[in-house]
Amino acid sequence: MSTDTYSSVSNNQQLPQISIMGAGAIGQLIYQQLSSSNIAVNFIGRAEKSQQQTVTFTNLEQQQTTCTAMFVGRTDWPLQLVNTRLLIVCVKAYQVVAALKPIIKLLNRDCHILLLHNGMGPHLEVANMLNGQGLSLGTTSQGALKKSAWHTQQTGQGVTQLGHFTGPMLSETIKISLLSSIPQSQWFEDILPMLWQKLAINVAINPMTAIHDCRNGELAAAQYRKTITAAVTELVQVAAAESIMLDLAVLLDRVYQVIELTAANYSSMHQDVQHQRKTEIEAINGFVVLMASKHGKSAKTNQQLLASITALEQGYSSNA
């Protein structure tokens, strides 16, 4: 194992500043990838005072890197956020709006916001919160696991898909830095079809693995095919009502390809349920149900999956 130590804390105000909200596995992975480029990167901290934190990263080759990350405390938000040119939001879908509310009023109008979370939905609320800022959306299939609070290990390569949603465009300089720093990343002029495609995988795999307490690979069994097909079919119909045209056969093939490729994995929703944590069901199957209702359509299977996961969550305290 080789170990490199460096500091990504920089006083060079000439560097474009990127701030990351959310120091979970993906937040720390993106931080490590960006901090190796010519960008000043920090985390938006929740503590009152700013502090430096040693963070460790293990890559796919098992090489370990340690660096010092700056967590901007609440008292320094007004001072530091005014310099942020890109705010990457890596919190859970249900945390996005609440996390942004105290932050967004401190951002410059030329700051850009990038939402990078599972599911869909928060982008619609965030778009109404903007005060001149631009908003981009993204999804990543990179795998990362927190071995401890400040040690993240990359577990899979995956692709990262990013694209503009509304407001002013992200500056070309920062866009190029993002794409050159994050491996296998792509920029799409129309990101919404990519997000709907990722959502199709999530509506099928996440709730089913949580409900049936199984690894992803077990969903290849014939007994689950009817539910998976119905859930994805409903999503395709709802997406069409939103003017997003998706190919059902191609999507179903992709779902089963992911089931095969990640056969030994437990989905994030399975893990959330096992640890009695709030899930992102509202931003996954719940989003399909919400959009179906908007267009006067039925999404019976997604509604049933939503209800099943909601019931599991409501049973946490009695099972504890």
Rank of each mutant, 00 (worst) to 15 (best):
M208Q: 15
A204P: 05
V250T: 09
E189Q: 14
I205C: 11
I201P: 02
V250G: 00
A221K: 15
I228E: 05
V250K: 00
C214P: 09
R225P: 02
T233Y: 03
E234M: 04
W187S: 05
I211E: 08
I191H: 05
M194S: 09
L248M: 03
R254N: 14
V238S: 07
V236H: 02
N202G: 09
E218T: 14
Q223D: 13
L192W: 02
E218R: 15
D253Q: 11
T229C: 02
A222H: 15
N216P: 10
A249D: 15
T227V: 12
K198W: 07
S243G: 01
I191T: 06
A231N: 05
K226S: 09
N202F: 10
A239R: 05
K198C: 06
P207S: 10
L246T: 04
Q223I: 14
Q257L: 14
L251T: 01
D247R: 03
I201A: 11
A240C: 06
L235N: 05
L252P: 00
A241G: 12
Q197Y: 00
I244H: 00
L219G: 11
A210D: 08
F188C: 06
V250Y: 00
L192H: 02
G217C: 12
L251P: 01
A221Q: 15
G217I: 13
Q257S: 14
L235E: 06
E218G: 00
T229W: 03
A241V: 10
L252Q: 06
N206A: 10
N206W: 09
L219W: 13
A240Q: 12
L195T: 08
M208Y: 07
A231W: 06
A204N: 09
V203W: 10
A230T: 03
I244D: 01
A221G: 09
G217Y: 13
I211S: 06
A241C: 10
R215A: 12
I191P: 04
A240K: 14
S243K: 13
W196T: 03
T209V: 11
P193C: 02
L195Q: 09
N206E: 10
L246N: 03
T233V: 01
D247A: 05
V236L: 03
N206P: 07
L235F: 04
Q186L: 09
A200Q: 04
R254C: 03
T229A: 05
N202L: 11
Q237K: 11
I205Q: 12
Y256N: 09
W196V: 01
D247K: 01
P193W: 04
L199P: 01
T229E: 11
L251A: 01
V203L: 12
L192A: 03
Q237H: 08
E218H: 14
S243V: 05
L252C: 00
R215V: 13
L251G: 01
A239Q: 05
N206Q: 09
M245S: 15
I191Q: 04
H212G: 02
A220I: 15
D190R: 11
H212S: 03
S185M: 08
R254W: 07
I205K: 12
I201Q: 12
V255Y: 12
C214K: 06
M245C: 08
V238H: 07
D190F: 02
Y256D: 06
I244Q: 12
V238K: 07
R254E: 12
Y224D: 07
Q223K: 15
T229I: 01
H212M: 06
M194C: 13
